[in-house]
């Protein structure tokens, strides 16, 4: 591997390949634990095992490519627009969505929406706590009007955890 010493491996390719290998192996191993069957009568595990194997191989090829200079267009693109990952903004978005899923049944739509939109609004570039609170309040009302009154979704406004 003479080229590997000359150039650092291309990290995005390494990571992408790594994820493909991991997921490919997971599906292949998982598939092998179901009934695989034969080509004539394929069991539930046949296709996942086959595809998982293919994905693993593809992932390995992508990793190899990373050491051989990487996927060139992607490399150029990465050099052009390397913006940092907005870690905590992304975390707030994900937290908001997860919070919604976890509490919407128990707390009901209104309080859940308020907390969720507050968390998500905090992720904005120009929003402080006060602005996020205002946004959250406004959006909660808007969503309730649109979904509960206009679209007539049967989602309780307040859930069982609040004694309803």
């Amino acid at each position: 591997m003479a080229t590997a010493g000359r150039r650092r491996p291309f990290v995005p390719d390494l990571l992408a390949g790594g994820v493909f290998v991991l997921l490919g192996l997971a599906f292949a191993i998982g598939g092998a634990r179901y009934d695989v069957g034969s080509a004539l009568r394929m069991g539930p595990g046949y296709v996942p095992l086959l595809l998982g194997g293919i994905l693993t191989v593809l992932g390995l090829v992508i990793i190899a490519q990373a050491f051989l200079g990487g996927d060139q267009p992607a490399r150029e693109l990465a050099d052009q627009e390397r913006a940092p990952v907005p870690w905590w903004r992304a975390a707030l978005l994900v937290a908001g969505v997860l919070y919604f899923g976890a509490t919407v049944r128990g707390m009901g739509l209104a309080p859940t929406l308020f907390v969720m939109t507050f968390l998500v609004a905090l992720a904005g570039h120009r929003s402080g706590v006060v602005r996020a609170l205002i946004t959250a309040a406004g959006l909660t009302v808007l969503c309730l009007v649109v979904f509960v009154y206009l679209l007539q979704l049967r989602l309780p406004l307040f859930g069982t955890w609040l004694g309803r």
């Binding site: 969720m116 939109t117 998500v120 904005g124 602005r131 959250a136 959006l139 969503c143």
Partner: peptide, 9 residues
């Protein structure tokens, strides 16, 4: 800052 929370909600 207002649009994307609305979209996600």
């Amino acid at each position: 800052e207002v649009l994307f929370p609305a979209i996600i909600a």
